[in-house]
Write a protein that binds this DNA or RNA. Structure first.
Lengths: 199, 199
DNA sequence: CATGCTCTCATCTATATGTTTGACAACATC
DNA sequence: GATGTTGTCAAACATATAGATGAGAGCATG
């Protein structure tokens, strides 16, 4: 949890220093992820981000160039993270579950993504590569009558819904979306859904 | 599209009147639905709502008691509308498709709902009635190994995703979420999904 | 220990935004 | 047609919020 300054010209930090830009950036990014994922861009308050991070709000302007800047920085991180999720060697069911666990462990990323989607901000318009899904379909991982694109989008929706609509979980399942009970139940159901789509 | 004043004490409107509170309310509600569903509560601007409606923004305070007031009014309308969608006599597949068309025809309601979900505003915590889904399962409309609650939530997610994540549609399908092509394609896929869940 | 750069903070400022105020016109009633 | 009420509007107001400013402390270097 402690910072390791990347700059070579700076001597190794003695565990506790007062001025630590790396640490400030990190704290601010974490705080911003909390704040933005909770309230969205328009609802987020720069002051609240600073309070969460325990630093002065001016640091946001200093390190990231303002509210917009730190928001975009979060977007870049999300893109990098999401890009690592295309593993053709692992079965589709496992891929979905892996993604689901990621979302359960930290819903902030997907919540942020949904918020972006609602506001119409779009990361990149590069078309999604469906060749992998088609390969899976040819290999029998997917029923022939289904559209690989549709399956992909449905799974995306199914994975994200507990994070983006927790109230719906409470209303329909009657349990907390964070609870281990629901996590297991939803994961199992998602597995079965995928299997049904293969048959 | 024209107003029919409900109050009996008011004489029938001569087609074009200057002072028409009913009409103002209607225009404002429509405009607010547009604005809020586009930008969410925090991002919406009272001035923009007034501009869309073509009236003075003070009327929002006059008729609805402010931004918060008109927002909640929209929420009440949504609840009433959604409550009408439980028709046990129609097959599940048809029910889903019916809901989907509703969303396609006017995505504002579901977008608003998703926005509420993200901000944690919750309409009512009354538990969803699952007896109908269980009946459908017993009647063979749903595979035995699936959790009715999970199916319900998944369908909800699948129906709303084109409205809430249009960019994902563009990215994955390469076509516009509004286009008839996508509407038909998604509806057909949703039908097949439901059928797969029945088998 | 002196110096210069980097980082941090408290305060100030400009602006945007929701709401309030007050004037006035349309309408119903008599 | 006079009058009181309701609906509408333009302008003023209060406040919240993001960003700017400048001072000063920490830190590396010599």
């Amino acid at each position: 949890m402690q910072g390791t300054p990347k700059r070579p010209r700076r001597a190794p930090t003695p565990e506790e220093r007062k001025l630590d830009p790396e640490r400030s950036r990190r704290l601010l990014l974490e705080a911003a992820r909390d704040e933005f994922s909770e309230k969205g861009f328009a609802g987020a308050r720069v002051q609240d981000i600073a309070d969460r991070a325990g630093v002065n709000k001016q640091l946001i302007a200093y390190h990231f160039g303002g509210k917009e800047g730190i928001y975009q920085e979060l977007g870049r991180e999300w893109l990098k993270r999401e890009a690592t999720f295309n593993d053709p060697s692992v079965p589709f069911e496992e891929l979905v579950v892996r993604y689901l666990r990621e979302v359960f462990d930290d819903p902030r990323g997907i919540r942020l993504a949904v918020w972006r989607a609602l506001t119409g901000e779009v990361a990149e318009e590069q078309p999604e590569d469906l060749s992998d899904m088609r390969r899976r379909q040819a290999a029998g991982e997917l029923a022939d009558d289904l559209d690989p694109a549709a399956v992909l989008l449905m799974c995306y929706a199914a994975v994200s819904v507990p994070a983006t609509m927790p109230h719906a979980v409470r209303q329909i399942f009657g349990i907390e979306p964070d609870s281990p009970e629901f996590r297991e139940r939803w994961e199992e159901q998602l597995r079965r859904l995928v299997r049904h789509l293969a048959a």
